[in-house]
Amino acid sequence: MDFNQHFCEKNQIAQGFLPVAMNTAANNGDWVSMKGYGRMAIVIFKAVGTPGDDPTISVKQASDVSGTGAKALGFTEVRKKQAATNLLAVDQFTKSTSAVPATNDTFNTTNGTWTNTDLAEQAAIIVIDIKAEDLDVNGGFDCIQVSIADIGTNAQLGSALYFGHEPRYPKDALDSMIVD
């Protein structure tokens, strides 16, 4: 194994949704395929907003990148950096699970959602890392989508990226995640 690989030889990146004021409408990410990857990290980066406008993050699974047969994907772990004003002094991620949730965290594994009651008024980087076997593989599901519902009245900037990692077929140009 080559341990001196370029980042793009080990990871593929795709847009979830571009930076947007998350109070203008539902923020549905693109659908991405995990066929070529063992894991998919969903990274959400958001600015400080107004208390009470807490984002609820949802993850769905489907059988193709057009969203066929979409249903909730019950994830059970979130890693986050979260702080008032900015994240310049936050060096480590906090691990939160559905079994042992961090302060103010709520997981709903039936609906595939997570939220934090202090998330609106704080800057945050949130990472949800999905394993391919977490999907309904027997049902033919190999695609995921992240979304954040309209957060309320006040502006709060946010964006999402997908990082496909643990490629099944390592090579210079990794498999696309936006096609089946």
Rank of each mutant, 00 (worst) to 15 (best):
M1G: 11
D2F: 06
N4C: 10
Q5D: 13
H6P: 08
H6I: 12
H6R: 15
F7P: 10
C8F: 12
E9T: 10
K10Y: 03
Q12N: 07
A14S: 14
Q15I: 14
G16T: 12
L18M: 10
L18T: 12
A21C: 05
T24E: 07
G29A: 09
V32G: 01
S33T: 13
K35N: 13
Y37D: 14
G38M: 03
R39H: 08
M40R: 02
V43N: 09
V43G: 07
I44W: 00
F45Y: 12
K46F: 04
V48T: 14
V48R: 12
P55S: 09
P55Y: 04
P55K: 04
T56Y: 07
T56C: 09
I57V: 15
S58G: 08
A62W: 06
S63T: 15
S63Q: 14
V65P: 08
V65F: 01
V65R: 01
V65Q: 03
T68K: 15
G69A: 11
K71L: 06
K71P: 10
K71W: 07
E77M: 05
R79C: 00
K81H: 05
K81E: 03
A83R: 05
L87F: 00
L87M: 01
L88E: 08
A89L: 11
V90P: 01
V90K: 00
Q92C: 07
Q92F: 06
T94G: 05
T94F: 02
K95I: 08
K95M: 04
S98L: 04
S98K: 10
S98M: 04
A99I: 00
A99V: 01
P101D: 01
T103H: 02
N104K: 08
N104H: 11
N104G: 01
D105N: 10
T106P: 01
T106A: 08
F107S: 06
N108H: 01
T109I: 14
T110H: 05
N111C: 02
T113G: 03
T113F: 03
L119T: 09
A120E: 06
E121F: 05
E121H: 08
A123R: 01
A123G: 01
A124N: 04
I125N: 04
V127T: 07
I128Q: 00
I128W: 00
I130L: 02
K131A: 15
K131M: 13
A132E: 06
A132S: 11
E133R: 04
D134F: 04
L135M: 12
N138H: 05
G139F: 09
G139R: 11
F141H: 12
I144Q: 00
S147M: 12
S147E: 13
I148H: 06
D150E: 12
I151K: 08
N154I: 05
A155F: 05
Q156E: 08
L157K: 12
L161S: 10
Y162H: 12
F163G: 13
H165A: 04
H165P: 05
R168P: 14
Y169H: 12
Y169F: 12
D172S: 15
S176L: 11
V179G: 07
V179T: 15
V179M: 07
D180H: 08
